[in-house]
Simulated scan of single mutants.
Amino acid sequence: MSTSQLEKMQDQVEIPEGVKVTQNKHMLLFEGPLGKTHKSFRNIPVKIDISDNKVNLKTIGERKRDYAILHTARSIIRNICEGLVEGYTIKMKVVFAHFPITVKVEGKKILIENYQGERAPRTTHIMGNTKVIPKGEDVILTGEVWTDITQTAANIELKTKVKNKDHRVFLDGIYVYEKKKGIEK
């Protein structure tokens, strides 16, 4: 294997100003202006080393698959660092034709009430430290960890999926319409 191929199998992520990253075996602990979080890399086959305000990543194997996994780990670390500095926001729109849907938050659960006239509310969980704020016909999700926010949004969309009806006609649900960096109040 040539030296240029070996250089491809390693990468590094710059740690932004104000973010502190520490390593405990396979666990990376992140601290920033917006909070703290952690990520386990136990199941991701990448060697991680922290030095000089940089996170150095190196693959274990030498295949294309290992190269792809390296870049996945890099983007996870980069997104967490950016989120702890700026944060992320996802806006969702509540859409209904006849029965008005209401969204409520109780602790770590989201209650979607009166969906297609149903008596019992549909419930889903909030992932991580995501903050869910229902504002009229909008639901605003904010937080530091991109994967937690997007998973919470996906859980909400899946709970309002139309079943046993023509989805082209029955468009009721809660849908994502904006994703951006920065925390919106």
Rank of each mutant, 00 (worst) to 15 (best):
S2N: 15
S2D: 14
S2Y: 07
S2V: 06
T3A: 08
S4Q: 06
S4C: 02
Q5Y: 08
Q5A: 04
L6T: 00
E7A: 04
E7L: 09
K8C: 05
K8Y: 05
M9A: 07
Q10D: 01
V13Y: 02
I15C: 02
P16F: 03
T22R: 09
T22D: 08
T22A: 09
H26C: 08
H26W: 09
M27S: 04
M27A: 04
M27Q: 14
L28H: 07
L28K: 07
L28Y: 05
L28W: 07
F30N: 05
E31K: 15
E31Y: 07
G35N: 07
K36A: 09
T37Y: 03
T37C: 13
R42N: 05
R42F: 11
V46Y: 07
I48C: 06
I50G: 03
N53K: 13
V55I: 14
L57Y: 10
L57C: 11
K58L: 09
T59L: 00
I60A: 08
E62S: 15
R63M: 13
R63F: 10
K64D: 15
R65W: 08
D66W: 08
I69H: 03
H71G: 12
T72Q: 14
T72F: 12
R74I: 00
R74E: 13
I77A: 04
N79M: 07
N79F: 06
I80N: 03
E82N: 10
L84E: 06
V85F: 01
Y88D: 00
Y88N: 04
K93S: 11
V94Q: 01
V94H: 01
A97R: 12
H98M: 01
F99Y: 14
P100F: 11
I101Q: 06
T102R: 15
V103H: 02
K108A: 07
K108C: 00
K108Y: 02
K109A: 05
I110T: 02
E118F: 09
A120E: 15
A120N: 13
R122N: 06
R122V: 04
T124V: 05
T124M: 09
H125M: 11
I126G: 10
N129C: 01
K131I: 15
I133E: 10
I133A: 04
I133V: 10
P134S: 13
G136L: 03
E137M: 12
E137Y: 05
V139K: 08
L141V: 01
E144S: 14
E144C: 13
V145Y: 03
T147S: 15
I149Q: 01
T150L: 12
Q151K: 15
Q151G: 11
T152C: 06
T152I: 04
A154I: 08
I156C: 03
E157Y: 02
L158Q: 12
V162Q: 09
K165P: 10
D166S: 06
H167M: 08
V169K: 15
V169L: 14
F170D: 08
D172W: 07
I174A: 06
Y175A: 05
V176K: 08
Y177K: 06
E178S: 14
K181E: 13
I183Y: 03
K185F: 02
K185M: 04
